[in-house]
């Protein structure tokens, strides 16, 4: 079996490298049975058009963030707000449930949640202050908008993040047009943003929602052996990538701190309020979006339970 695949980001990003590792593993184990041909990244099909391309069968497989098709599968917020990772959600059936939902709502097979457990932090140029109760003080913060965390920031801090095209962010941070941004624990240095950002706010929040979707018709046409190899390797890669990236996140954070990044840690109840707010805003968004679909809130509670270690 031959499978055509695309990936959402350019190969310079660590996430793409992780997917290419998965492809190598499949092609090695599936020799003579199943092969994945990578057609390219966003230069081949734009990143927001990739989910539709899989759905319509233009390509068979895409490695993409579920956020790009959040309108179709709002349940992706279960991953975003998760306080665990794919290893946990795979073991207790959370990913299987998400796969069912993908099949029903989108006509795609959800093969695996890769690079999970990597969280986001807020990074700022000027030292952020905390109020009397230890909460983060937002006055003077100009935060770069990002669909993933906008809901959280608006709800918790009552602030409207600033929309900028990605290519402008470097110049905007350099000149202070924005002075704060969220980013994953990995990759800040690759973007060179660490040159301007001096503070990190702990605790971290959210998780990345990168994963592999396969066109359902294509999946059903695959031989049982191919399906088995793909699913097996994907589950292994869920574990490997989560573990590898957790290690890498630690390394990169230590490196940033060694280079002078200062850490502002919210303490005790304030930290709890911060984390709760991140989760609540996201669950609220998920609930609102799910209600607009015929399936409604059927799996809402189950998803929250299976994607969180509460």
């Amino acid at each position: 079996d031959q499978i055509n695949a695309v990936h959402a980001f350019p190969p310079s990003l660590i996430y793409t490298q992780s997917f290419l590792e998965f492809v190598d593993k499949v092609n090695e184990r599936g020799e003579g049975v199943v092969q994945i041909n990578v057609r390219g990244g966003p230069e081949v099909i734009g990143l927001s058009e990739q989910p539709d391309a899989v759905r319509n069968g233009v390509v068979d497989m895409a490695y993409t963030a579920a956020s790009f098709y959040a309108g179709t599968v709002p349940e992706r917020d279960a991953m975003v707000a998760s306080n665990t990772n794919a290893i946990y959600a795979r073991e207790n059936g959370g990913i299987d449930l998400l796969n069912e939902i993908h099949q029903e709502k989108m006509g795609t097979y959800y093969l695996g949640w890769f690079d999970s457990g990597v969280s986001y932090n807020f990074y700022t140029i000027d030292g952020p202050s905390v109020d009397g109760e230890g909460n983060l003080n937002v006055s003077g913060l100009r935060l770069r908008s990002n669909p993933v965390y906008d809901a959280f920031f608006q709800d918790y801090l009552g602030a409207q993040p600033i929309s900028l095209p990605t290519t402008d962010v470097y110049a905007a941070l350099e000149r202070g047009v924005v002075n704060a941004t969220g980013w994953t624990q990995i990759g800040l240095k690759d973007l060179n943003w660490d040159r301007f950002l001096n503070y990190r706010v702990d605790p971290a929040f959210f998780s990345t929602d990168m994963g592999v979707i396969v066109n359902l018709d294509k999946w059903n046409q695959l031989s049982e052996e191919s399906q088995q190899i793909l699913q097996e390797v994907a589950i292994e890669h869920e574990r490997d990538s989560a573990e590898q990236l957790a290690e890498l996140a630690k390394e990169q954070q230590a490196q940033l701190e060694a280079d002078g990044m200062q850490v502002i840690t919210l303490e005790g109840e304030a930290a709890q309020r911060f984390s709760d707010a991140a989760r609540d805003a996201t669950w609220e968004r998920m609930r609102g979006q799910m209600e607009r679909h015929p399936m409604g809130l059927e799996h809402y509670d189950t998803l929250i339970e299976k994607f969180n270690d509460l």
Binding site: F68, A70, G71
Partner: peptide, 14 residues
């Protein structure tokens, strides 16, 4: 038919 949305800062029906 699919009730597609364009997902950016807001969800806009496609």
């Amino acid at each position: 038919e699919r009730t597609d949305y364009d997902v950016r800062a807001f969800f806009v029906p496609k």
